[in-house]
Amino acid sequence: MIDALVVEDESELQDAIVTTLQMEGLRAIGLSSVEAAERWLAANQTRTILLDLTLPGVGGLDWLRSHQPAEHTGVIIITGHPSARARIEARTLGADDYLQKPLNLEEVTLTVRNLIHRLPGASQWTLDLLNWILVAPTGQPVRLTASELGFLHALAREPGTAVDRREIIRYLGANESSYDMRRMEVLVRRLRTKIEEETGEPSPIQTARGVGYSFTAAIRITERPAT
């Protein structure tokens, strides 16, 4: 199971999308035609398909007409085609989202993450402040350090919203004027890896460039009991 199958015949764009998704902690591969995608899907699974409409051989819309996406698989159309009719037909045929070229790669990543967490079977995470644990929708626990707990607490208060780095620093109990932002980058990289390795789920921590970070999935906070 991977997170994103990118079906795009423009090799440079395909590489850019796949590389960006992988840098953001998502498992992604790229293929150049729906025929190649069909062969790959015969033996593998993906949570999302990013599908270009204008492909060599069978086009994206033709493929959607003859292949109903699996219930657990989301479809994101990526195309330079401006036609509203094409967008409507793609959604009618089961596409979940539609991105217009030229693409904003940060938007692509956010769209993939959000779709993954909207798919059937996806439910909320839990941040247990008492026991310093993040619990995945599958029930898998991730034990946290004090810094990881503070970081996630800052994000979990406003899931889906970009939280400013200065706000996160306060939750880390650090001094904003002397805090080295590289420490936060290392913290996030290690935390993403820990979440994915221990839960088998894609990390819901998203970089909001120029602002900070966001937690892109539903999450509830189990509060520390009153004393």
Rank of each mutant, 00 (worst) to 15 (best):
D62N: 09
R65Q: 11
L134P: 00
L93C: 06
L93F: 08
L51S: 01
T92V: 13
L119W: 03
Y98P: 06
R47K: 14
E71D: 13
T126C: 08
Q140W: 11
G59T: 15
W132H: 13
T48W: 00
A122Q: 08
I133H: 06
I77C: 07
L50N: 02
V75G: 00
L134D: 00
I133C: 05
H81Q: 14
L129P: 02
P56M: 07
S83D: 15
L51V: 04
D128F: 03
L130W: 08
R85Y: 14
R87A: 15
A84V: 14
D128W: 09
A86P: 01
L50S: 04
P137E: 00
N44P: 05
R47T: 08
I78A: 03
A70P: 01
G74T: 03
A86H: 09
L61C: 09
T92Q: 15
E71N: 12
W132N: 12
G80C: 07
R47N: 10
G59I: 07
D128T: 02
L64K: 01
E89T: 14
W40S: 07
A84F: 15
N44D: 10
E107K: 13
E35V: 06
T48N: 01
R113G: 05
Q45E: 14
I78N: 00
R39G: 12
N44H: 15
R87G: 05
V108M: 04
L64A: 04
L110E: 08
G121Y: 07
D62I: 13
I76E: 00
A42F: 12
